[in-house]
Each structure stands twice: as C-alpha cells, then as structure tokens.
Design a protein around this nucleic acid. Structure first.
Ligand SMILES: [Mn+2]
Ligand SMILES: [Mn+2]
Ligand SMILES: [Mn+2]
Ligand SMILES: [Mn+2]
Lengths: 157, 157
DNA sequence: TAGATATATTAGCCAGGGCTAACTTTACAA
DNA sequence: TTGTAAAGTTAGCCCTGGCTAATATATCTA
C-alpha cells in the first residue's frame, strides 16, 4: 500500500527543477499550515482579551466583536470553545478572564505579534500595512523564523 | 447605534501604549486575514496542479492528495469547488487542467511562493523550514510586503 | 426604582474543508 | 481479452466559524 519514502522511481533528480521537495516534505508543510489554522482563533482571541484588559480594565464581548470585525454571537460561541479548551474562564453575562494557560499563550502571542510588526516595519513597510499583514503572518512563523526576525531587528537597530 | 469613528471618549491617546490602533483598523486587519483564508485552498491547489503538470505531464487527484497530505475524497470535493469557481476544467475520471484564470493565478502564486522562500533563506533560515513557513505566510503577504521582500533580495544578492 | 437601552446568549442556518465507507470507472497484466 | 488492482467519485458524517432573529440579562437614566 504505502510505498517506500523515496519516490521518483526512474526519474533523474531535479529533472524539471522548480519544486524538488519530496512529496512527504510538501505534505508536512501543508499539514503544519492546517495545524496553525486550528490555533489561530485561540491566539487572536487571547491576545485581544489581554489587550483589552490592559487598556480598559476589562474584556467585554461587545468590544471584542468590534475589534475582530464579527458579530457578538460569533464571539460568544468562540469564547465557549476557548472555555472548553481551558484558555478562558468566565461567568455568564460577565466579562472575560484568561486562565493561567490563556495568559501564557497571550503573552507569547503578543510578543510574537510585536516582533513580526517591527520586523516588517524595519523592512520599510508602512505601519498600517505591517499591522495588517502581521495579523495573518504571525500564525505561520516558526521558532526558527521568529529568531531570524529578532536577529535582523538587532542588526538593524 | 454605530458611533463616530473616533472612539476613546475621554481617555488620553496612547494611554497604556501597546496597541493604539483604532478598532476599525484592527477589524480591517482581521477581515483581510479571513479573506485570505477563503483564497488559500484555491491558491495552493492551482499552484500544485501547475507544478504537477510541469513535472510529470499531468495532474492526478491521487498525486495531489499525496502532496497535500489529505485523502482523495477531499481533493475531489475541492476540485469541484474550483471548477465551480472557474479555475479548473476537467472531465470525470480524467486528469485536471487549469482554465486561463487558473493558470494566471497559479503563475502569480508560484512566483510569490518562490519569493517568500528565497526571502526567508536570505535571512539565514534553512530551506526545509523556509519551505514550511512559506506555505502559510505566502497567503498573507500584501503587494507592498512582497515588493519589500524583493527589494531585500536584490540588495542581498 | 422602574422603564428603556445596551449587552449577552441561544437557536438555527450556512459554507468550508477534513474524514470513512461504499461504489464506479479506468488501467494494467496475465 | 478479461479480471483484478488502482484511481476516482459519491454519500454521509464531523467540527469550525461566520451569520440573523429572538430571547434573556444587566446597566443606566429619568
Ligand atoms: Mn492574527
Ligand atoms: Mn495578533
Ligand atoms: Mn500555501
Ligand atoms: Mn505555495
């Protein structure tokens, strides 16, 4: 059934150039992207909750909805998922808090977000654009790449 | 109902620092990420179809599934969506072709993918990691940012 | 403090993109 | 050429994360 890992049976390696990765390596890349997408909602939400608490003293669904650009029922539903997953704790009709785990995730995400934005700006990109692009890019930056961004930032003041 | 765009009623601007973007700007960022996600499947599929045709002469669902790391029925379903959306043309049980529109999209995506990978590698990241991260990052790179990547690549040979 | 307004939740809908199991069609090899 | 193996499709399931409409609760204000 599942063949040997080394494919390309009788074809010279790097025949037509382009993408000479093995099918497995490519599949792994796509799998990681799908995994990243599964964490994306959680990361953006805890990040936003932490920001709102810091900025205004509390995190309310209505404010989250406004900043996320979605309707309040969407926030309610997603908050239930985050509560189920142990990142958020709350009581009905009351404002939102992060669990210890949620706070840790929020801290890491905010740091990473800032790094990505700073990196893009160091590259000469305008802040508005940097913020927009970072919102998506941040979830796909591996530890290695994040470190490379930091190194670049140190070298470029 | 919907208030004036300028919020933060009686609070000094940049009070607690951190994220001083307006709620609207932030919502716009999230909206763009959601829009990018809607195109992601299409972009990866047409890119892969073009690669397979170039490398092996034809694009077969079974090979797409292997390289995407998904099961064949998933490919079938998604190909139907792409056909519906005018990017792919095919006959049942036969291999896959791109429409003119699909080819244009594939060309742009392959170019962008290569630029992102090259950029990350120019930053000192190992090829495997660059390929993996690029698979996700590529979909969130605006025209401005892509140009900045290209400028960086020219400056750094 | 009572009524109006703002906020939050619930219920129910939808599309996307995964999956398995079962079936159909094609391709290959004896 | 025929029968089996490989490939492709269909049906039906799941979860995510959007939405609207209706309802419940909290908050504010007169
Ligand atoms: Mn984000
Ligand atoms: Mn973020
Ligand atoms: Mn991709
Ligand atoms: Mn790609």
């Amino acid at each position: 059934m599942s063949e040997n890992a080394s494919d390309s049976p009788d074809l010279a390696p790097s025949d037509t150039a382009s993408d000479d990765r093995t099918a497995d390596a490519q599949a792994d890349g796509f799998a990681r992207v799908r995994a990243a997408h599964e964490n994306e909602m959680a990361e953006d939400y805890v990040e936003l909750i932490a920001e709102l608490i810091e900025a205004t003293g509390e995190a309310r669904p209505v404010d989250m909805a406004e900043r996320l650009g979605v309707k309040p029922p969407t926030v309610t539903k997603n908050l239930s998922r985050l509560t189920r997953d142990g990142l958020v704790k709350r009581e009905r009709y009351r404002s939102i808090f992060l669990t210890e785990e949620g706070e840790n995730l929020a801290r890491a995400c905010r740091e990473r977000h800032r790094t990505v934005v700073s990196f893009l700006m160091a590259l000469g990109i305008e802040e508005e654009v940097a913020q927009r692009d970072a919102e998506g890019i941040e979830h796909h930056v591996s530890g290695d790449t994040l470190r490379a961004f930091e190194v670049f930032l140190q070298k470029n003041s």
